[in-house]
Design a protein around this nucleic acid. Structure first.
Lengths: 215, 215, 215, 215
DNA sequence: TATGAATGAGAGTTCATTCAT
DNA sequence: CATGAATGAACTCTCATTCAT
């Protein structure tokens, strides 16, 4: 997934079929990993469960022994992904003080680190959301809304306390989030090796603070 | 397409199969429109060429009479989309003066207007890029790089002339672009009707200027 | 289908896969015929749609070009079968007079002829009814009830008019019908060639009249 | 299983998955019972061995511990069913005298009672016979022929001694058997509760005697 | 121009069965 | 006695595409 005509460097050539990652770690885990990689590379509909089984080094039926089906695999992956994001946010916010700028910095850090460390998988939630069947979508929609609220409350608070002076907090929020999320699409450990994650966090914290017009 | 766990309002419920838009405008055009809508709603792999034909109100064979196949349909759609974006950028930049802030504002305006007016279709380029076969991808990669360069040159110039003071122009560029692109994912004419496009342009211009730290 | 431990001669050894009857008569018809034969021989679940396609001399996809699926094939076959039975009954009853014995004889004749002429297929309705999905089942249940009523009304009338003296018309009806239906399970043109259908009709008419205790 | 377009009340709605009958009586027995119910409800091919294990409240492997496979399960069930029928016939005939009418009545009673008491399972032999593999089929065909002979000999003897005056003993026999067998398809303890089995036996004995034209 | 018929490949899923433990 | 893990074959059905008309 790129961000369209106006995007940055293209994300490597689809990497059609990486070497079947050795199934170390038993059935369930191997399948989850294979699905994560395949969904990320080729998308939900572009991935066949035969691809997944092959990549996991297991038979087609073994996949069904461990998972209920392709759709559940997707839902589980996304849920797990959101869960981790929440854990990171919680931890970062708990470590932060009461100061709005500090709290915003904490959320930016959590997000940037999440997008970098889960660069590939984290985009699944982004691009495959529409392929969730209603039952799963409803449940996960709630989690997503909660994540959005984390940001919204924080920024609204900063505005209320006069720390942030942006005129349109909603747009500021969306801009900050979009900027952080996009990292997963262009950042490549190999290419941007010189740029370590703490630098990246600092840069995006600065950008975020400017977007909300802090000070 | 959403932007993941940290996203905004979810983009309407997939709208499984819209009414077969009346094929006004003859075969070729009707098919293109149908493909655009279907690809945008369900993705490339999630769309069958029967879906497209049905939506266009034509037979399967008619589709093949007008187009070479599904892949060519996708490539044509994306190319057309980028073309339009370029046209908008060119026009906006021609109308702008020499001042970096004004030029940045022009590009933001072109982008915001493009993302709003082509809200649905413009996301095809974003999310279906990976489904382009090598031949098409190579050609279009070039166009995308050119679009990126438009922004990069402009921002670099602003920095060089002291108008922009951001320390990391590349990140600023990516942040601005990501913020503008994301509009297509949350903006809904119905819901945000009160907010007209000129307002939106103003807001994002302000955000962009803060991101590059103008003045 | 036999009638169990207490049945008659077994119905030839399943005739696993007859020669693929030449598909004379175009796609739709060839498939219908093949499905009829396969369902009759091996049952609904025992028949794969590949069996059907192969027997029809067509590809798997051609089958789906002509029919919506396996279930619809079954429903159509059964419906057609019931339709024909009704046509035979109507014709026979119209040709009969007002006399209860004559009317019963007419219905017996229609049924025996139907079971003999459609020996193989007519058992599909019998044994595959439970495999109809609710939508089809509901519709067809109505038709079946109507067929039952044909018999019930006729016998009740005979009893009311003193022509039949059986004490339990319902049981008489079920016995007559069961006896006639069973013909499809043991009658084999080859083996019972000497016994032509008119003889059979006479014999079962006599049995039916004794069952209702006529005179 | 119904008897087709001309049948009686439909046999309850398939009862997709009854509650897993508590496995009282240990593994082997629980599995047999579960298989009996499943085969009766959904047919041999319509039943998966997982269905059986689930219904028996046991694991898949437990099933294979106790039984050789699906086919053997079917064959065993049918054999057991025929065995019981024979036992009933023997007992009834032993209790009867030498008089043809009495002997016929005895066989009718055995059959009606068998069909009523084993209403559900007894239809398995009827409808799943064709799914027996040759080895089992051959053996069981012999048993079935023996059952038929019981009836045939009895009726032929009645005719020879002038007790029965039907012109076509074979057809009379098939009609009587068919009528008795059909009971399993329409008799429902709940619905026909008022009608107890002895009444039913009396009614069908009367019908049988009329069919063979006794006296 | 436009169509309906046909196809081979592949989709997701379930099957009966095996085997080490 | 009983289990959970695993498999290969087969299942129904949909795919993108072709071609004679």
């Amino acid at each position: 997934m790129s961000t369209g005509p106006l995007d940055d460097e293209p994300p490597g050539p689809a990497e059609a079929s990486g070497p079947p990652s050795v199934p170390r770690g038993g059935g369930r885990e191997a399948i989850t990993r294979a699905a994560r990689e395949s969904f990320a590379e080729r998308g939900y509909h572009g991935t066949s469960i035969r691809d997944i089984a092959r990549r996991a080094g297991l038979s087609l039926s073994a996949l069904y022994h461990w998972h209920a089906g392709k759709q559940e695999l997707l839902a589980a992956l996304i849920e797990e992904s959101i869960d981790e994001y929440f854990r990171r946010c919680d931890a970062a916010l708990r470590a932060a003080g009461d100061d709005p700028a500090g709290r915003l910095a904490a959320l930016v850090r959590a997000t940037v680190e999440y997008r970098v460390s889960r660069r590939v998988e984290s985009t699944i939630a982004t691009s495959e959301w529409r392929n969730l069947e209603p039952q799963h979508r409803e449940r996960l929609d709630g989690m997503r809304a909660a994540a959005t609220r984390l940001w919204a409350d924080l920024i609204d608070d900063g505005v209320a306390r006069g720390a942030f002076r942006c005129a349109h907090p909603g747009d500021a929020r969306r801009a900050v989030i979009a900027a952080c999320n996009a990292i997963a699409q262009w950042y490549e450990p190999h290419t941007h090796g010189g740029l370590d994650v703490t630098d990246l966090v600092d840069r995006y914290t600065a950008i975020a603070l400017r977007i909300v017009d802090c000070r």
